[in-house]
Write a protein that binds this DNA or RNA. Structure first.
Ligand SMILES: NC(=O)c1ccc[n+]([C@@H]2O[C@H](COP(=O)([O-])OP(=O)(O)OC[C@H]3O[C@@H](n4cnc5c(N)ncnc54)[C@H](O)[C@@H]3O)[C@@H](O)[C@H]2O)c1
Ligand SMILES: NC(=O)c1ccc[n+]([C@@H]2O[C@H](COP(=O)([O-])OP(=O)(O)OC[C@H]3O[C@@H](n4cnc5c(N)ncnc54)[C@H](O)[C@@H]3O)[C@@H](O)[C@H]2O)c1
Lengths: 218, 218
DNA sequence: CAGTGAATGTGCATTTTTTCACAATCTGAA
DNA sequence: TTCAGATTGTGAAAAAATGCACATTCACTG
């Protein structure tokens, strides 16, 4: 149970997060049990894949029946460590930064923005709708330490992103979510996720030019 | 040259887009030539991977030298079809929707927002800073057809996303970029990309709880 | 114009990920 | 208590992706 001895494939982790979306809906709609086949359809993957992904962490199903929705969701949340609160900070309070801190979804899932930073002196001091005040980047080190920030979010222009990443890792942030369109470098102890919308669009563009029998799902 | 006979792995396409970022910087900084090794380091991948990715589409390098930056960038743009203008429309002009249409990066890369839609009557008619006026969703079909929209961007709340996807595909949009946290379903002829920030964060959370010798790069 | 150094392009081995297929096992009914 | 029906968990096969290693080819030098 909840063994996780060997190493788990990265795609498995990504899919576990994806599985939890329809599971939340099923839970809300009162469905008590779901089969790997049904869940697979809802997520656009293979049923065996669902079972194998879960099997890395234990046996959550009942043969002949399926998975109890509430139970499975709880298990996935434990695996992904979303059953606790994570503290985020965000650097670069432009359009994107504001949209992110204002989004209720994150709070609902346990991702709390604990601090927001910007270099622009006209913005520093401004109180955001979510209650946070924008802090100067000079306070990154102090606040990251004091507020126990786990994840740093970078929403500055591209040319500042690496510098900001350095500030954050230097302040002790253990992982980064970067929205600027370049690969920021960080020490091996810091895990970095990149969100590059340009890459997504270019993918679409590529497929649009040769859309003959392309699969609809990733 | 530019053969592309067999099928190309999906990860290759994704990486081509990633390669183009440092190439743009190199071009700007006047670097005439780059080796697969250097480019690989800049992108956090294996040099052989770079060469193999490119080899799917032709021979762009010069043995003993490397790749001419300008040439290679042009080639990648041709492959990814980013050497032309794509017309986008966006549905759901909330925080995220506004951040997206206001972002200059997209225009610079040839992704033009041709129309913006919302259901909220208080928002319809409003003129955005980018010049676009917010249209009612009743006009989706007409405008998508008239403006020749290639890509539909969905930035509505989760519960409306599937309905909006249906409206868009029905109107003839050939691909979708969805930001709502669920897998929208679309006909096989329509290519869908999902951007789920929750998945990214949950990935980080997972790795944070077991960060022992984890690789920094994807 | 031959020789050197360097980096490509690529066949092949390796690794990773997905999928298949079926024995194991559970529920509920008779 | 046994049986039927259903779906899991999982070895083993298949497919996909990555990385190695080197022959090939080019630029440049003397
Ligand atoms: N807006 C989008 O929809 C969108 C989408 C994808 C990616 N991005 C990327 O996200 C980043 C931000 O986009 P945006 O539209 O919000 O830009 P923006 O210009 O609206 O905001 C950037 C903010 O960063 C601040 N900033 C600049 N340098 C800084 C520094 N060194 N330290 C702290 N703050 C600094 C600026 O003062 C500004 O407030 C960009 O890299 C952009 O390419 C944006
Ligand atoms: N804000 C973010 O940073 C962020 C990040 C990731 C994902 N998302 C997702 O993107 C979506 C939008 O986020 P947001 O923060 O902009 O929300 P928002 O509430 O600010 O905006 C949603 C907009 O969609 C409009 N809308 C609702 N139903 C519609 C319909 N049927 N047709 C057209 N328009 C409709 C609303 O009027 C509103 O303007 C959500 O699904 C959210 O989960 C947001």
């Amino acid at each position: 149970m909840m063994s996780e001895s060997g190493k788990v494939p990265a795609p498995t982790i990504e899919r576990l997060a994806i599985y939890s979306r329809p599971l939340e809906d099923l839970l809300e709609s009162g469905t008590p049990v779901v089969s790997s086949e049904r869940l697979a359809i809802l997520c656009g993957v293979n049923p065996a894949q669902v079972r194998k992904d879960l099997a890395y962490f234990g046996e959550f199903g009942v043969r002949g029946l399926g998975y109890e929705v509430r139970e499975l969701l709880r298990a996935i949340r434990t695996i992904l460590a979303t059953d606790r609160v994570w503290h985020l900070c965000i650097v670069g309070m432009g359009n994107l930064g504001r949209a992110l801190v204002e989004n209720e979804n994150f709070k609902k899932r346990g991702y709390l923005f604990a601090a927001a930073f910007d270099v622009d002196n006209r913005k520093v001091g401004e109180r955001l709708r979510c209650g946070l005040a924008i802090e100067p980047i000079a306070k990154i080190k102090e606040l990251v330490g004091r507020l126990n920030v786990d994840i740093g979010v970078i929403t500055t222009p591209q040319e500042d992103a690496q510098r900001v990443a350095d500030l954050l890792t230097d302040a002790g942030v253990k992982s980064l979510l970067n929205f600027a369109p370049l690969q920021v470098r960080a020490p091996a102890s810091c895990f970095v996720e990149h969100v590059d919308l340009g890459v997504k669009l270019e993918n679409l563009a590529y497929h649009l030019t040769r859309l003959r029998g392309a699969k609809p799902h990733k």
